[in-house]
Design a protein around this nucleic acid. Sequence first.
RNA 1: GCGCCCGUAGCUCAAUUGGAUAGAGCGUUAGCCUCCGGAGCUAAAGGUUACAGGUUCGAUUCCUGUCGGGCGCACCA
Length: 572
Amino acid sequence: MVWKPLTDGLAAALRSLGLWSEERERRIELAVPRDATHGDWTSNLAMPLARELKQPPRALAERIAAAFPPDPERFAEVTVAGPGFVNFRYSPEFLAGLPNRIRALGAEFGCHDHAHGLRIQIEYVSANPTGPLNVVSARAAAVGATLVRLLRATGHDAEGEFYINDAGNQVDLLGASVAARFAERVGTAAEFPANGYHGEYLADLARQLPEAPARAALARGDLGWFREQALDRMVAWQRRDLDDYGAEFANWFRESQLHASGDVARTLEELIGRDMTYRAVKPEVDKSAGDRGVEPEDSGEATWLRTSRFGDDKDRVIVKGNGAPTYLLPDVAYHRDKRRRGFRHAIDLWGPDHHGHILPLAAALEALGLEADFLKVMIVQQVNLMAGGQPVKMSKRAGEFVSLRDLMDEVGADCAKFFFLMRGTSTHLDFDLDLAKQQNDENPAYYVQYAHARVCSILRYARERGLEPATAERPWTADGERALARMLSTFPEVVRGAAFAREPQRIPLFLMETAAEFHRFYHQCRVVGDDAELSRARLQLVDATRIVIANGLALLGVTAPERMERPAELAS
RNA sequence: GCGCCCGUAGCUCAAUUGGAUAGAGCGUUAGCCUCCGGAGCUAAAGGUUACAGGUUCGAUUCCUGUCGGGCGCACCA
C-alpha cells in the first residue's frame, strides 16, 4: 500500500540527483520506526550511500528528502533526522482513508504481488512412520503450514510436502514389531525384534489387522505384509492428526517411489560420473576427531561420497558394504526430483538432531549442479514441555511421550499453534502447559482472540442500534485513533518481512501489539455513543481492526472467534 | 576434540535481515468498572545485552577468543 510508492519515490529521487543505479534501487530499505516520533516510515538509504560516495550522510539525506516527489495523498512531510534517516509521516487524508481501503480489500489486505513469484516447496514434519507425531512435529507443522501461507500471501507459488520414509531398516523393524504383536495376540510365541518399537500403539495396531490375512502372512513368515499394513495405517493416522491440526500438504511423497523408479540408482551413477565417489573400507578424508569412530568389521567396501570437497569434515557413506544405500543417497535423489518438478527453492524443516545432515546433502546437490541457494534447511528446535515448573519427560523408548494428539486434546489446536509460532523457529522453546491450558488473561493466544471477539461484539452492538460503519472519510482527532490506524497500516509490511525472512513469529508479535493498541483505543475512545457520525466513523476503524486481526490469525491457521465463552472463574 | 543452535529484566521471550532512548507478557507494587465484553486499561520498579577484544557514522545483531547450556559427530533414518 505504501511500500511500493515509497520505493518508487526514493528511486525517482535518486534519478533526479543523478545517483540512480539498479543495484542501489534494489538495496533501498524501508522500515516502520519503533518510536512513532520518528515518523511512520523510515529509510536509511542515505547512510550506506554516503559511505559509498564519501559524502556526509546528513547532507545527502537532505538532498534525497528534497528530491522525493511530493505525494500529499499519502505523506504530509519528509524529514531528515538522526545520523541521516529519511522519515515519512502519513498525511491526515491517508490515515482517514485507510479503513475504507482495508475494508475494500478484506481478506486480501496484507497480501502482495510484488514478490518474484517463485515456485517454492516447503517440506515439513516428514516424521518417520513408526509412531505418533511428537511435539517437535507439532511445532514444525505449525511453522511449515504458516510459511506456505506467508509465501502465497506474498506472491509466491508455494506448497507443502510430507516425505514419507517408507524404505530402509526402520520400516522393516516396524513390520517385524507389528508381526510380533500380532503373534502375541493370536497366542503364537514370537520373538520380539531387537531394537523393535515397543509403544502400546503397535499392540492397538496389531489388534486392528484383518485376522485371516494376518494369520496367513504370519504362517508364511511374510514380514513385508505386516510392514505394508503398518505403514499404511501409520501414515493414515499421522495424516488424520495433521488434518485435525490444520496442517495441509499438497503432496505426500513416498521414498519408496524413488527406489522403484530407478531415481536412486541414476543419482548414484551421476555422482560416480562426476567423480564424487570412491569405494573403500575407510574414508580417505576424515578430519573429525570423534571418539565414536566406527570400525567396520566384515562389511566390506562401501561407496563414499566426497563431501569433504565441499567443506564437510569427512566423507560420507552413500552405499553400505552390503549394497544397501544409506539415508543420504535417496535424500539426494529426492531433492534432485524436487528441482526437476520445477521448484526454485526447497525449504526443509528438520528436527534438531538432523543438522549434521545439512552439509552432506548440500554438498551432493552442489556437486550435481543445483543452484547454491536451492536448498534452505531450517532447524525446528527442541521443545520442552513444562508442567508445574518441571519438564515433562518424553521418552520414545519407554513409549511414554506427549504426542501432537495429546497436545491438541490438552490445550487445543489454536493455542498450541499460537504458542509455537510466537517464538523463533531455531530457538529452544519452553512450552508452558499450565499457561496454555489457562483460558485467561495470562495466555497470549486468548489475548488476541479476545480482541477479535470484542471487536465483533462492538459491531453487533452497533448494528442492533442501526449503526453501520460510515463510508465517508473524516480525519482522526484522537491519539488512540491515529495510533491504531498507523498500526493497521503496517500489516502488509509485517507480512512481507515475515515471508522474506522466513520468520513466522513476526505475525503473532504484531497481533499482540495490534490487540494492545486496540484495547488502548477502546478505553480512550467511546465507539458507540451519542454522536452518530462519530460513532460511524470509529466503526470503520473497528471493522478494519477486525479484518487485520482475522487476516493475521488466518496466516497462523488460528481461528478468529466472533464470541468467546467466559471461563466460570471469571464470569462473576 | 569438531560442527550447529543458544546466552538480553526475577521467569518466558522480542528487538523489522547493522539503525535512533534495547521492548512485551508473567511475577511484584499502586490505581481504573453508572457506559460498546474488566479475558481489559493506566502507571511504577526491574538491564554493564554471559565476558574480553575487533570491524564503523552506529553492534543485542557481523568477526575473533573465553565461559556456560542444548543437540549432533554410525556402513541408523
